[in-house]
Amino acid sequence: MQPLMRKFVRDSRKTLIWTAIGVGVYVAMIMSFFPTIAEQGDQFNEILETYPEEIIATFYSGDIADFKIDDPAIFLQTEAVIWIILIMGGMITQQVLGGTINAERENKMDLLLSLPVSRREVLLGRVVNSAVFSLVGLTAIFLPVVLVQPFMESFHIAPDKLALGIYTGFFLLMVQASLTFALTSISPSHTRWAGPLAFTYFFGAYLLMAFAPSIDWIDTISPLFIFKYYNMAEIINNGLEMTDVLVMAVVSVALLGVAFWRFEKKEIAV
């Protein structure tokens, strides 16, 4: 099991390192704008109030009445975290596809499964790799904020709240990874719908969430969208909603259960 995990992590280490560096630099750069935003907070908020709700909701999935751009948590959420989560979600989806259904098509899965390792171990190795990728990416958001904020008087988020806010994003990313694992385990490798469906769900859910405040039917189905359950700024400012975490955890475990069950029965590369 360990050699498998080490191999999977090793295979993605360059992507992991450069993603972490990129995310870290981006967060530090975005934070450097905050003193200006804080100084002119009233003007910025006035301008933002004139924006349609849908646009604000694109950045901020919480209660729009609470939206203040000079709030450090909301600033970090809207200017960095939401985008990084979107990028990481896309990368994890691609990584899962590469490690499962694409590996089947490229005959790499044959090579792995010709060794005395179980299918469960192979899939578990891939899941651990997605978890490591998520945690490293989230740490790349957390560390620059912790390191930079002592030098910025106007920006302060307690490190424990910051950690809770950022690392809860792990559940969101794992739901997306689990969904992709489930879809790739269900779909025969000659079909091409698992990837598009996984990407459509993730980015579609994000975009539709923006219209939930103003379109009733979208609002009705919004519990199906993963972004409804995670907003870093709300966690930092109002505390963690355990129900949201539970929903994400249960959905993720259920989807992984489907993935393991179906992968065990799957005809590889057929």
């Binding site: 295979d11 490229e106 790499k108 044959d110 090579l111 499964l113 010709s114 390792v117």
Partner: peptide, 29 residues
């Protein structure tokens, strides 16, 4: 599989290794 050596007709390798690294990894597995 622990007692079998298998060679696929459409062999695809992990290209980020050399032969020795690949064999050392197989030793561990």
């Amino acid at each position: 599989k622990a007692r079998v050596g298998f060679l696929s007709s459409e062999l695809v390798l992990w290209e980020n290794w050399n032969g020795e690294q690949y064999i050392r990894w197989l030793e561990k597995v």
